[in-house]
Design a protein around this nucleic acid. Structure first.
Lengths: 250, 250
DNA sequence: AGAATAGTGTCTCTAAGACACTATACT
DNA sequence: AGTATAGTGTCTTAGAGACACTATTCT
């Protein structure tokens, strides 16, 4: 039976219900390590476990709008600051048994946020916090959220290669060193400072100079660094490729 | 309200119904041009328009399983031949008004198929056919399927760059010339034969020789070509990058 | 014979990465 | 003073692309 035949004589109330939710993997960098926004579940199943923020898609809402709303609710963010957060669709997860209560298809999203204040405690019934990604292996997330986070991290690492979205983790003005710290944190390995510096400046539209410099040098010494803004490029040519990993190639 | 609170006291029957469907953008190469599998709608809305094959996700079916089932139903394919078709999730489309009848969230998939016979007429109520992609601009597709196809084509062009999936458009044994024809057809521009040849053989795991050659030379002359099989690489290192397009970069 | 293709050789230019070095500003 | 960082210079090597050329097999 085809979609159109099916829809033509389809009675929504008679069909097994499917719920559509959005979940958000919101990443940020705090204290030089990668964090993501999680909420702690109060109810069964998975009571006490951490889970991704998310919720039902409302009747008149597009998918990404729903994700942005959920993000706003959990972070207390709004207006200009919310608009600066990068948000994109990641993938959909719909294994029949992924939620023990009913059939739930979740459209997962990926967000890159600058360093934000802690979620205001008490705005919501659930506890929400920025949690270090590194500590996640110890405590498994609710549902299939661990798998979703894995996919999100791989997407994030890949996005830094060929888009200028690393700047979305930073304030509007940043130094090349700040930008390099984003790459090192997300990729999880050091990046050569000198080569990175030259490379970033050579890619058209990645960053543009402000003409100003930092007020002070680095905390442990060094000259004042020039400040840059995000440029107008949407893709990086040439890309900043991670070193090839043989395991993933085969 | 959070997902877990919401779900805890959620009555599926009381909530506005959302339907979840899968749609498939199945690509193949016929007569040296890119084709996709479409069905012609018999019913309103969009009666007479071409649309993507697709349908409802069944209660105990994962999303990609549903897409593979839809593809099998429309192509009449099964077993080993169906398993050789590459199928991956593309993205989900859920604008509130994308279907005039009700709220439908569609999880679109992308398929790469070798040249297949025409869909058997009459196996299904709807007419199904492989349609040249080039002619689509003239006749708009139903719903937002035009947008989905655009996204699918861009994903396909990009996938050829960094994965060996071009081989999925071909039979198990193919020549380097066959492979180059896939790239030229999907990318829509000529690729330098000599450089392509050397490049493909230099990427580890892209193709492996069979030790045999074609029975005859090319239709318009030329020596017999060596035959290759797909190798074991899942990613191409280094990638076969398309020439940079300035428009998309900015 | 003439033409088209398979496959290889060679050269140039870009880009990545390793390393070195200077200048600056911190503790 | 000692040390860390910003930023630049230089060298080597890999890879992309342009071009040329031979061998083979078609009409």
């Amino acid at each position: 039976m085809n979609e159109q035949d099916f829809l033509a004589d389809y009675d929504p109330r008679a069909y097994p219900a499917v719920a559509v939710t959005v979940d958000v993997v919101a990443l940020t960098i705090r204290d030089a390590s990668l964090h993501l926004l999680l909420i702690r579940r109060a109810e069964q199943p998975y009571a006490g476990h951490w889970a991704l923020p998310g919720g039902f898609v409302r009747p008149d809402e597009d998918l990404t709008d729903a994700a942005r709303r959920e993000l706003a609710e959990e972070t207390g963010l709004g207006g200009e600051r919310l608009r600066r957060v990068h948000l994109e669709q990641l993938a959909s997860y719909g294994a029949p048994d992924r939620d023990p209560r009913m059939r739930v298809v979740s459209v997962a999203h990926l967000a890159f946020a600058p360093d934000l204040p802690d979620p205001a405690a008490g705005t919501d019934a659930a506890e929400a916090a920025w949690v270090p990604v590194a500590g996640l292996t110890a405590r498994p997330l609710a549902f299939d959220h661990g798998r979703i986070v894995d996919d999100a991290l791989e997407r994030a690492r890949s996005k830094l290669e060929y888009t200028p979205l690393a700047t979305r983790f930073l304030a509007t003005e940043f130094t090349i060193g700040d930008l390099r710290a984003v790459y090192e944190t997300v990729w999880g390995h050091p990046v050569h400072a000198g080569n990175f510096h030259r490379k970033v400046l050579s890619v058209p539209g990645f960053v543009e100079g402000t003409g100003t410099s930092t007020e002070r040098g680095g905390a442990r010494g060094g000259p004042r660094a020039r400040l840059y803004r995000a440029g107008d490029a949407r893709l990086l040519h040439p890309a900043l490729l991670r070193p090839a990993r043989e395991e993933t190639a085969r």
